[in-house]
């Protein structure tokens, strides 16, 4: 006897597939934001579930900050090739060179500069909808975001003026120059993402698994030593067994000490974790409203 009842992963999956198909049906030029990170890996599998046996009817878009982990970009390119998808990469460095993105004097982080780079790509390709892997459990400002999140002609999010979202009826109407962000994983948690990756046996970049890396301790975090982030003076460098829990830029992503080298270990580690995923992202610690401010300006 069939139970005719979906478990939680099956429910989240069917909800996300429905959102993806709405995007494909309602927009003329949508794209999927694909970084190679764990959330966007799930997005691509969901796109396969939504659209196969057809080709995925939209290109993949990535904003390359120039500060990406090399393992991430390698994975991104490989996965896009496997899927037969069209991958569009726009670089912050080129946006700086052409004056689209202007760094403050001494600004090292590329975090803010991603925003004009992304919005320039939206204009260049006249994208009317970007599908992103953001989840509401990540952060307090995201907890208030809709599945279909409207952006005005400047790419801005107005949290006080969001469209009410009722049942599974998504209002996809926009005027020329405006665009939409769609978030099929809105209701997923970090644990759901890993359970799904495990259930679907999805490949992920190697840095999610335990490996050896030289790190320095800064502001309570282990940051990887690279050309972009050399040790200062006689700052002690430690050789640690680490992995990443969430991937940002290589200069701001805290490595966690971990022996986890398979899905089950990672799931067990998250179940026992005592800090949130974004606790290891320096970009979110700036202020309590850091994410809210970036989102209003057009961040994913």
């Amino acid at each position: 006897m069939h139970s005719y009842h979906l478990d939680h992963l099956q429910f989240l999956e069917t909800e996300a597939i429905h959102v993806m198909r709405e995007v494909a049906a309602e927009f003329e030029r949508p794209a999927i934001l694909f970084s190679g990170g764990k959330d966007s890996i799930c997005l691509l599998r969901l796109a396969e579930k939504a659209f196969r046996p057809s080709d995925i009817p939209m290109p993949l878009l990535n904003v390359d900050t120039g500060h990406h982990f090399p393992e991430l970009n390698e994975f991104r390119d490989r996965r896009a090739r496997q899927l037969g998808g069209k991958l569009i990469v726009r670089k912050v460095e080129e946006a700086i060179a052409s004056g689209i993105a202007v760094p403050n004097p001494g600004e090292v982080s590329r975090n803010r500069l991603q925003i004009p780079t992304l919005l320039a790509a939206v204009e260049e390709f006249r994208f009317d909808c970007l599908i992103g892997g953001a989840r509401r459990d990540e952060e307090k400002a995201r907890a208030k975001e809709r599945f279909f999140s409207f952006r005005d002609a400047f790419g801005q999010w107005d949290p006080k003026n969001q469209r009410p979202e009722i049942w599974n009826l998504y209002n996809a109407r926009i005027n020329p120059g405006e665009h939409m962000r769609a978030f099929p994983l809105s209701n997923w948690t970090e644990m759901d993402v890993w359970e799904y990756i495990k259930a679907e046996q999805l490949d992920v970049p190697s840095i999610y698994f335990s490996h050896q890396r030289r790190c320095v301790r800064r502001q309570g975090q282990w940051l990887p030593v690279t050309d972009l982030l050399p040790p200062k003076g006689n700052e002690p460098v430690q050789d640690l067994v680490v992995r990443v829990r969430t991937i940002g830029d290589i200069i701001s992503t805290g490595m966690i000490e971990s022996p986890a080298n398979n899905y089950d270990d990672i799931i067990a580690e998250i179940a026992a974790a005592r800090v949130t995923e974004r606790g290891s992202r320096a970009d979110d610690k700036a202020s309590e409203a850091a994410m809210e401010d970036r989102k209003k300006a057009g961040y994913f």
Partner: peptide
Amino acid sequence: GLRAEREQGITIDVAYRYFATPRRK
């Protein structure tokens, strides 16, 4: 979650939260 809400001590929009027990999400 939003700064405006904390300042005014009100909830201005729907906020979603996620938690789990061994029996349910």
